[in-house]
Amino acid sequence: MEQFIADLKNGMFIQQLINGFTLGGLYALIAIGYTMVYGIIELINFAHGEIYMFGAFFTFVLIKNFNLSLAAAALISILSCILLGIIIDYVAYRPLRHSPRLTVLISAIGVSLFLQNLALIIWGGRIVHFPEESLPSFFSGSAINIMEINISWLQVLIIIITLAIMLALNLLVTKTRLGKAMRAVAQDKTTASLMGINPDRIINFTFAIGSALGGLSGIMVGLYYNAIFPTMGYMVGIKAFSAAVLGGIGSLPGAMLGGILLGVAEVLGAGYISSSYRNGIAYAIMILIIIFRPSGLLGKKIIKKV
């Protein structure tokens, strides 16, 4: 408590808040992938966390082994992530479209297990770092430095990219024809296909967007912590899913709100409650939300139909 008051006075608290906001923005980007796929085919895409991990690794390999610039590497790895997402859907989910939900969920867990261990075999279990010289030097330089508060350019960049993507995505879903088609497929696939929408194409598109955002956030997290390892996806994946549930699964603004709340809660909880329970905070929030308010903060109530 004393620590908390001291931090309030010298601005450390605001620093923590901004750190939490950065982390939360990243969670939100991943949560969007979960929430969009869940909204359309009612599946917890367990492999999403793995796509995020592969995004970071692809970039790492392109920079390290192919000497590409960061921007080019990022672009190529995002495209590869999109491809990966669509392949996963094609191999493991599409044949099971009309099976019980449990079946698809088990398949999703299988894919996640496969990809994570594939990464383990290819890149080994050790943490890898981006080579120093490949990162633009201004990333670590501080953009804002008042009192104790220190915000790096990378943080600013992450926050700006995150906000821009969220805004663009919201416009896409609410204003364009494609977004309308997505909402229609989410509501009722059969009726949507009667209206001339190809649900499979829309589902593909959803996976593509989700995977691109997953890959992008993987790259940004890799840059932010400068640490990439095969199990990074599974932990963050579950946290991002918690964020999606917190905001109300199937809702885009919900995923953004949930992600940011979760990020802030995690950073503040680690700072003022217990740093060893850092991951526990996300799980506890998720369990409590699912038990007491399964529809989330912004979600609609789901009625079970006979």
Binding site: R101, I238, F241, G280, Y283, M286, I287, I290, I291, P294
Partner: peptide
Amino acid sequence: APTLKLTGDYFAIVTFGFSELVILIITN
């Protein structure tokens, strides 16, 4: 008792969270 009213994937994910919390508590 509180979670069994949930169905399918929500139940799965809550049980997952539970086991992760058990590990965290054991570790810490």
